[in-house]
Design a protein around this nucleic acid. Structure first.
Length: 170
DNA sequence: TCAATGATTTTG
DNA sequence: AAAATCATTGAT
């Protein structure tokens, strides 16, 4: 019905991110509002894992739109990303907030998402996104945790966030 | 402000 | 083969 399809994700990541913030993630029949996300856009983005080119780890970013990219950060936290854009164009959206839970590692811990989902897609029965026909007010902030990137990329407003007070479920 | 904790990447 | 680097979090 309102399931977000391949064409939705097969666009430039900035367009996808604008539309994905505030949409619903359906994971194992439970619904969550996407309340915060981060954008990592191509080899030119020094904050993006693909800035070092194609490696065994980053090759997943070059895959089809809608592919899931999960990697382990700091040996503890699984990071849940969705690949966007044309195949061969390494872009991914990091899901940083669901409902009032903010923090990419907290989300995957709560939902039980780990690297076994790496390479799967967001077009499955257990995991997909849908349009809830609602609009939310959100803010554009600097990305978090990317001090290793150059100044231009550090200053990009590629973190989108819906404040908790602006969330309404129902 | 700092330790936990391990896959990935580089040779610091 | 060894060291450094992390898209973080929760506890001091």
């Amino acid at each position: 019905m309102n399931k977000l399809d391949y064409d939705f994700f097969n666009r430039d990541i900035l367009l996808v991110a604008e539309d994905l913030i505030g949409k619903t993630l359906v994971f194992k029949n439970t619904k969550y509002i996407v309340s915060e996300l981060g954008i990592y856009r191509g080899e030119e983005d020094t904050a993006c894992h693909a800035s070092k080119g194609l490696t065994n780890r980053t090759k997943i970013l070059y895959d089809e739109a809608g592919t899931i990219y999960v990697y382990l950060c700091y040996g503890i936290h699984n990071m849940f990303n969705i690949v966007t854009g044309n195949k061969g164009q390494p872009q991914a959206i990091l899901i940083r907030g669901l409902n009032n839970i903010y923090g990419p590692g907290k989300i995957t811990k709560k939902l039980g998402i780990d690297r076994s989902l790496n390479g799967k897609t967001v077009f499955s029965k257990d995991l997909y996104f849908e349009d809830n026909k609602k609009t939310y007010n959100f803010h554009r902030n600097k990305r978090i945790g990317i001090n290793y990137a150059n100044e231009i990329d550090r200053n990009r407003l590629w973190n989108f966030k819906i404040e908790e007070k602006d969330l309404n479920y129902g």
